[in-house]
Amino acid sequence: MEMFAFSEAAGVEDAIRAGAESGTAQQGARVRFVAGGTTLLDLMKLDVERPLAVVDINGLPLDTVTKLTDGRLKIGALVRNSDLAYHPDVRSNYAVLSQALLSGASAQLRNMATTGGNLLQRTRCMYFRNRALPCNKREPGSGCSAIEGENRSLAILGTSAHCIATNPSDMNVALTALGAVIQIEGTAGKREVPIEAFFFEPGDTPERENVLDPGDLVTSVTLPPPPQNCSQVYLKLRDRASYEFALASAAIVASVDNGTFSYIRVALGGVASKPWRSLEAEEQLYDQPVDEASFRRAADAALAGARPQSRNGFKIELAKRCIVHALGVATAS
């Protein structure tokens, strides 16, 4: 691990000032905030992250979950994954988020990992994690080893000729289905970004993963008022039953009225370069009868644009069955 200067941020402005010294907030950042540390230390040990300065933000007052007067739920960036998963409001009103959090990592990691950190967690692509091999995300222009390489776990949606890395987060998939909004404070003040606009597809700049600029600090994530009369399901498919990343996952928020879908949100994980909302699946379901044929049409639409690689073609059918099964669970009476 490279040497770095360690400091503790005394306040949000303090952190922003320190972060602004970095040339980028993306891959290659010279300044990194540390919260739970579960992604950052992992990658620093691999020399994939080599910050000159590490700023501890754990002392900042961003660790509470607050019900706002307009019904939204505000989740501080430093709220630990375990605390969020077991929060009474989240368990009863945003069950898909609780389920997604508890399906990720281990109890130990969930006790450490934060809302902001999980949002920003990095891909598990083995070439990104291995400095001996080319990777456009880690070293722009060096090439993608995963295309034609070991790509079984990688993405089939939202990829490019330069990068096929998967966003590994379960939490992000649930946040996408729930329509979360990210609050950011930076050198130019405060701003809010809907989660669907927060992440970028790789295109020809896979090293740029999200909207964050130097000095930007994610301070909270807000959820809209609880969806009414909706059932919520997170279904995660993986190689082993626990403590494993998704090969495919689906987050469903659904409401059924007189036998047809009156509200539906579908988001996918494990198969895409970013947490993937499937408007195509949703369009196929609105006002449609709740039956297997509708589910299958939605699943086909969701994966119509899939681009399989040499070793992950199985993910197309796996993701479809994941959607079909999750819709079935969500609508079982």
């Binding site: 360690f6 540390v34 739970g36 540390g37 579960t38 230390l41 992992d42 040990k45 590490v54 375990s82 281990s106 109890a107 130990q108 990691l109 006790n111 450490m112």
Partner: peptide, 23 residues
């Protein structure tokens, strides 16, 4: 040493954590 095995588990303020992933 990468949070994948749990051998390093200790309690910090009463909660279990992976001691390999924190400074």
């Amino acid at each position: 040493d990468h949070g994948q095995c749990g051998a390093c588990t200790v309690h910090v303020n009463g909660r279990r954590v992976n001691s390999c992933l924190t400074f």
